[in-house]
Amino acid sequence: MNALLLSAWFGHLQILQILVNSGAKIHCENKDGLTLLHCAAQKGHVPVLAFIMEDLEDVPLDHADKLGRTAFHRAAEHGQLDALDFLVGSGCDHSVKDKEGNTALHLAAGRGHLAVLQRLVDIRLDLEEQNVEGLTALNAAAEGVHPDCVQLLLEAGSCVNALTQKKQSCLHYAVLGGSEDMARTLIHSGGHTNMADHQGLFPLHLAVKHNFPALVQLLLDAGSDLDATDNRQQTPLHLAAEHARQDIAEMLLIAGVNLNLRDKDHPLRKDPKDPYGKNLTFKQDHRQERQQFHSVLWRLASRDLRPHEWKKLAYCWEFTEAHVHAIEQQWTGTKSYQEHGHRMLLIWLHGVATAGENPGKALFEGLVAIGRRNLA
């Protein structure tokens, strides 16, 4: 960093002018390839940017440093909104990528700069552009664990299930970061819970492995496959045992994980010829029609039922006060009722199936009984 670059870096406009007037070389770079424009943009010094663009000759607006990043990239990466606006007004290239394939959108999202990200969305940068690792801006925001940026990009129309080169989704990153809020946002926006990465790991595997019980419960409530196997043929229960996650192992058992019982005559074994039989089972029903019904119940709980209507349904189906109290025990925020309702519906569905009743008919009658005929 020579004196001229330092004056731009720290925003000392008068010193910069003195040095230029004294014959300093304006096209200098530091060892990383940063020019005067890069320095001023990264630190957000708009008066210096204006002097460079308006009073100096032949300063290339889109010159790249050794990482392939322009001043526009640098302003986005470091959250300098005013500098970004100046460069946009000066006609910089919005869509240019650095050597890792990142656009300004990737850099702002990955660093969590919400105001800059909003401006980049407003100027209509491609939300689905991928870098060399296959990350979109939404993937980058999820990887950096920036829930507000994730929410903004989802509202702008980003694909919630975009996969990277390693087949990781945003939900994988949310779980790796231990962010329950972000995972819930992604699931509510249509994020698939049953997607495997390059190692065959589902989000549920990762939540178990890294010991995030709240995320395990969230993923279970959202219909994660309890018996999914990774590339080592390990189920979530295997991982819970391998890493001594006792509490999580109990959660998986309660949720109905397949214990692979070998005795065909065991009383807990379900008769395959009687899928709605009255025998108790720990094995999930993975038939397509049942999976579709699970999706209906999740949508019902998260979007259609009003805050207290899940309780009305529960009482209509003869749940007791103790049952309802147990279901709503876990408070996770103002939208807890969605998870409570979903949990109640899953319990109800298990009971209906065990009794051999038609769940569609029973759900229709329940909704009518609480005054939601149109929804039914």
Rank of each mutant, 00 (worst) to 15 (best):
A3V: 07
A3N: 07
G11F: 07
L13T: 03
L16P: 04
I26Y: 01
N30C: 09
A40L: 00
F51A: 00
I52L: 10
D58Y: 03
H63R: 14
K66H: 13
R69S: 08
T70E: 08
G79D: 05
S95F: 11
V96S: 14
K97Y: 04
G101V: 01
T103G: 10
G110L: 06
H113Q: 07
R119T: 03
R119C: 02
L120G: 06
V121W: 02
V121I: 12
I123F: 06
D126E: 11
Q130D: 03
A142H: 01
V150M: 09
V150P: 08
Q151Y: 13
Q151F: 12
K167H: 15
Q168A: 12
L176P: 00
E180H: 14
A183D: 05
T185Q: 15
M195V: 15
D197S: 07
D197P: 03
F202A: 14
P203W: 04
F212H: 14
F212Y: 15
L219M: 08
D225Y: 11
D225E: 12
L226P: 00
T229Y: 04
N231M: 11
Q233I: 07
Q234D: 13
H238E: 06
E250G: 09
I254V: 15
A255Y: 02
A255K: 00
H266F: 13
H266A: 12
H266D: 14
K273R: 12
D274F: 04
D274Y: 05
P275E: 02
T281I: 06
E289I: 03
Q291F: 07
H294N: 09
S295K: 15
V296Q: 10
P307A: 10
H308I: 12
W310V: 04
Y315S: 09
A326C: 02
I327Y: 03
Q329V: 05
Q330F: 10
K335A: 12
K335S: 12
K335F: 10
Q338A: 02
E339R: 11
G341K: 05
M344L: 07
L345M: 11
H350I: 01
G366W: 03
A369W: 10
I370E: 06
N374H: 11
